[in-house]
Amino acid sequence: MTELAGVSSRLPRGRHGLPREQVIASQRERILRAMADAMAERGYVNTPIAVVLKRAGVSRETFYEQFRSKEHCFEAAFERAVHGVMGRIAAASDETTPAPGTPENTDRLDRLLGAYLEALAAEPAYARLFLVEVYAAGAKAVAKRAVLQESFVAVIADVLGATTESQRFACQTLAAGVSAMVTAKIAAADPDGLRALRGPLLELVLRSGDLYGDAVRAN
């Protein structure tokens, strides 16, 4: 997922003449990637800063020039993961031409589900960071995860045309159920199973009538 990859390659050895801003950006992206990859293997608790430094190929001084602590680095990596996922969802939402013979709302929901699941499957380390390891990173990180969950609820409610309190509550339960299922697939390192959720989830919503929103009934 290029949104998450960023400027992750190592800089040329020796004198390279690159602007300082580019050097800092490269170092930062390498550190964030190293944090995600290390935690995917070891878990948040068992990932010391020394492991991140070795993976990123940077010094401790360089690390602390950009991050106050391991927790601060995790927060930045979390934001990077969210940016990548939300970027894919926004791109899918901007597509306006439905597939031939497919109602607009159904097509939009299918594209959004596909974008979300593909974003997670394409970057399992970052996906694990904000779906699994976030719960080991403390209350502040979990609170950010809750805010992200509500943003997904808002997207679902908009697509499905939720206008009542009961419909929005149904959208909240749908988002929570999807979150639990994708988290299990990520924890089990099962990207194919993750992608396979797309069809059944879409079918579930389409069979629900106006449970989640009036847009489904209109289809």
Rank of each mutant, 00 (worst) to 15 (best):
67 F>S: 01
112 L>A: 09
53 L>W: 07
74 F>C: 03
2 T>C: 04
155 V>N: 03
210 D>G: 08
207 R>F: 12
64 Y>D: 11
102 T>V: 15
189 A>Y: 08
15 R>Y: 07
155 V>I: 12
150 E>W: 01
109 L>H: 05
5 A>S: 10
150 E>I: 00
91 A>L: 13
59 S>K: 12
154 A>H: 08
199 G>H: 03
13 R>W: 11
86 M>E: 13
213 G>Y: 10
23 V>W: 02
78 F>C: 00
206 L>Y: 07
84 G>L: 05
86 M>V: 14
32 L>R: 12
132 V>Y: 00
109 L>K: 01
79 E>D: 14
72 H>T: 09
177 G>M: 09
209 G>Y: 04
161 G>F: 13
55 R>D: 02
136 A>I: 01
51 V>P: 05
78 F>T: 00
120 L>H: 11
45 V>K: 08
179 S>T: 13
69 S>W: 02
130 F>T: 00
42 R>I: 06
54 K>E: 15
118 E>G: 01
198 R>T: 08
22 Q>V: 12
112 L>P: 02
135 Y>I: 06
37 D>E: 15
18 L>Y: 10
78 F>E: 00
89 I>T: 14
74 F>N: 04
141 A>I: 04
94 D>L: 13
146 A>P: 01
203 E>D: 15
89 I>P: 05
117 L>C: 07
85 V>G: 06
102 T>M: 15
135 Y>S: 04
101 G>R: 09
79 E>R: 15
194 L>V: 08
149 Q>R: 10
133 E>G: 05
136 A>R: 01
119 A>L: 10
156 I>S: 11
17 G>N: 07
203 E>C: 08
8 S>I: 13
30 R>G: 06
102 T>D: 07
62 T>W: 02
62 T>S: 14
50 A>W: 02
11 L>S: 09
8 S>L: 09
47 T>F: 03
109 L>G: 10
111 R>D: 14
102 T>E: 14
155 V>L: 14
79 E>W: 12
46 N>V: 03
